[in-house]
């Protein structure tokens, strides 16, 4: 079966790629485009390692038919930093040892960014709910929750200042 052309914006950049029929967005990003930041954990929606944002909403790239993102805005963790400056979430994860093996981290960051965009001052319970679709096998979650709350505080301070 022939490949289909697909274009969308990836981290604000126009991107064009050919996709196989039935290809999912995760494979397309990783193999077609070369963005290795979303990870393959399960391919069935259970781990959240492949989480990306589509038009600002959190989606699982492994369960998204690639061609359905035509003309839409896809964001991955690769687009979080502004040049050499890490995003406050990335800095807080690094400082707070919220990443150990790091496999869950890109998905956690996308889930956290989606929360903070809508809820800049979340409660701990809201953070836990926001990452409830993302599995971490290393940290026990507490450092991740702490890091997200720390980043939220710093981002509010930055806006206020």
């Amino acid at each position: 079966m022939s490949k289909k052309p697909l274009s969308f914006t990836l981290n604000s950049r126009e991107t064009a790629v050919f996709v196989d029929p039935g290809a999912n967005l995760l494979d397309t990003l990783r193999r077609g485009v070369g963005d290795l930041s979303p990870k393959y954990g399960c391919g069935q929606g259970t781990c959240g390692a492949c989480s990306v944002r589509i038009d600002g909403a959190l989606h699982l790239a492994c369960l998204t038919l690639a061609e359905t993102v035509a003309g839409r805005a896809v964001e991955t963790t690769a687009g979080l930093a502004a040049g050499p400056d890490l995003h406050p979430l990335q800095t807080a994860f690094m400082e707070g040892f919220a990443a150990q093996c790091g496999f869950c981290t890109p998905g956690m960051l996308m889930a956290a960014k989606t929360l903070l965009d809508r809820t800049p001052d979340p409660t701990r319970a809201e953070v836990i709910e926001a990452i409830s679709g993302n599995l971490c096998r290393c940290t026990g979650y507490e450092p991740i929750v702490d890091a997200i709350l720390t980043a939220a505080g710093r981002m509010r301070g930055r806006v206020a200042g």
Partner: peptide, 26 residues
């Protein structure tokens, strides 16, 4: 039919689409 795909794409990823063709609408 493919809607949100949370179940259909899981089947597709595991080679068990259950049909030769997927159809979706926007």
């Amino acid at each position: 039919v493919l809607a949100g795909g949370t179940l259909v794409m899981r089947d597709v990823n595991y080679g068990q689409a259950g049909a030769a063709r997927l159809a979706y609408t926007t």
